[in-house]
Amino acid sequence: MITINAIIEIVPQLSRGLGITISVLLASAVFAYLMAFIAGLCRLSKNIFIRKFTGFYVEVFRGTSLIVQLFWLFYAVPMLFGIELGSNWWIGVIAIGLNYGAYLSEVVRGSILSVAKGQTEAATALNMSSFQRMRLIIFPQAVRMMLPEFGNYTIQILKGTSLVSLIGMNDILYHGDIIRSSNLSQAPLVYFLVLVFYFIIALPLIWLTRKGESISKKGVAS
């Protein structure tokens, strides 16, 4: 059958984009998690300048689109500061990381705030320092609460990685576009397979998110 032959032909070509898609996914996820914890904790800081400054970062990145941020960094950073961010891979990772880091910082902040007040009091009664209270009591519970949202946002990050094809990275979508432009009638199959590729990468993330949901239901004071 023609379709099977076509699939056999297309799949290896799309696979060439797997490396870029997955490396951008992993790097920007790690970067986003990092930003999430830094910004989330900074927004709980006692210092008003730190709070306002991180608040500004969070609102700007949540208030505009990822695609706008990506293009802005892609065109503007070299122009504005006269520096090259090195490569488009880095621009993609930084844009996605900063964008989802801003969203996730709200998850971090909200989870920490929602650990029951009695937990802090019990820790105080056991004479823990404020650092120990955070490290031993609040943080471990907050992290459990965060898991499902971190899972969900990681899937969002995966979807966001498709935008790096727009700044010239050879990811899965880029290779799909190349095949389509050489054979327009194959477009339905090509883009369907591209979607399947993304879905297969998403499956473990979906599974982890569900796992995270069940963990978060246990071991948290309500």
Binding site: I155, G160, S162, L184, S185, F192, L195, F199, A202
Partner: peptide, 21 residues
């Protein structure tokens, strides 16, 4: 689940470029 966890950009391409084919 499939629609939700795959990129909307690719879905746009599918509808715009692939659907007519």
């Amino acid at each position: 689940e499939f629609i939700r966890s795959t990129p909307p950009l690719v879905q746009l391409f599918f509808i715009y470029y692939a659907w007519p084919m």
